[in-house]
């Protein structure tokens, strides 16, 4: 009986680790999903995430509040995405080049913002503690003992899904991502919608970064996102631009990350680098499989994704 309970707790511990690793991917990918559904490819997610991590940690240290830090992290990502939106949506600059520039800029800025906070430590974000429920064996910590970011990530998936398929604004956003010329001709505000979608994506990326520095590893280290922004981008494709698939994919990718760490610790024969490449391989595989199923026509990605819109006259 005790042995049984022990293994359950170990399984729960692994699952908690996986959820923790998946949370920043979920938040960042859901934001990017909205931007891409509107037709904007934001390759600056990594930069917005790392800036959010630095700004979030710095503000949390100064104010002593994790909540204020998280808001500041989202705000930093939003500010950087506003610049990206200005370039790509308002000034019709190339989205790929601008996005890459945002990543480099974000990495640099985050170093500047976080310079005097390197090495500082904070308590991690508080976890939910419900008397009775949280202590339930095997499930309690997984379901009722997470921090606010985790619950927010799941709520975000439900919210984004509801917005995109159940509201008029969401329909307009998807339509604009599919064909900006047609929607412009109908009198819909292509640029306004796209700009807002980019801002939402940036805020989510910043928040995902803040999760890293406030909860996942509660300190700031330069370039601490370690490519998670890129994984989030791959995740959107892997999930074929659907929010709940993002959740599933993030758990899978998070699982791969955890597996990679454990494999290294356990001295498994497989090199860690091969395991870190897994999410990307999975993305390629998913793309191939999904497009095989789409032979008949139509397009999987938002049709206007990455295409610059210039209203004629």
């Amino acid at each position: 009986m005790t042995v049984h309970g022990l293994t359950l707790d170990i399984v729960q511990m692994v699952l908690v680790t996986i959820v923790a690793a998946a949370t920043p991917l979920m938040i960042a990918a859901l934001g990017e999903l909205v931007a891409e559904r509107a037709g904007v490819l934001n390759l600056g997610v990594e930069g917005m995430m790392v800036l959010g991590a630095a700004a979030g940690f710095a503000v949390a240290v100064e104010t002593g509040s994790t909540f204020v830090g998280a808001v500041a992290g989202a705000g930093a990502g939003l500010a950087l995405s506003a610049l990206f939106g200005l370039l790509t949506v308002v000034l019709s600059a190339n989205q790929v080049a601008s996005g890459l520039a945002m990543t480099i800029l974000g990495l640099g800025l985050s170093g500047l913002v976080g310079a005097s906070y390197v090495g500082l430590k904070r308590d991690p974000a508080p976890h939910l503690a419900l008397p009775g429920l949280t202590d339930l064996p095997g499930l309690g910590r997984l379901l009722f003992g997470q921090d606010g970011f985790v619950y927010l990530a799941f709520a975000l998936a439900a919210g984004v899904s509801w917005f995109l398929w159940r509201t008029r604004a969401g329909l307009i956003l998807r339509a604009i991502g599919d064909d900006h010329t047609a929607t412009h001709a109908l009198g819909l505000q292509v640029r306004r919608v796209r700009f807002r979608a980019v801002l939402f994506g940036g805020a989510c990326a910043g928040l995902a970064g803040a999760y890293l520095s406030l909860s996942y590893t509660p300190f700031w280290a330069p370039a601490m996102t370690a490519g998670r922004g890129w994984i989030a981008l791959a995740l959107v494709v892997f999930a074929s631009w659907r929010p709940f698939r993002v959740l599933a994919g993030a758990l899978l990718f998070g699982g791969a990350t955890v597996l990679q760490l454990n494999a290294q610790a356990a001295g498994l024969g497989l090199p860690g680098q091969a395991l870190s490449a897994l999410p990307y391989l999975a993305t390629i595989l998913a793309l191939v499989l999904l497009s095989l199923g789409r032979r008949r026509g139509g397009s999987l990605a938002p049709a206007a994704l990455g295409r610059v819109f210039t209203p004629h006259r």
Binding site: R174, D179, T181, A182, L186, G298, A303
Partner: peptide, 8 residues
């Protein structure tokens, strides 16, 4: 030129 979104 129809103002229709093909994937909707």
């Amino acid at each position: 030129h129809f103002s229709l979104c093909e994937n909707l």
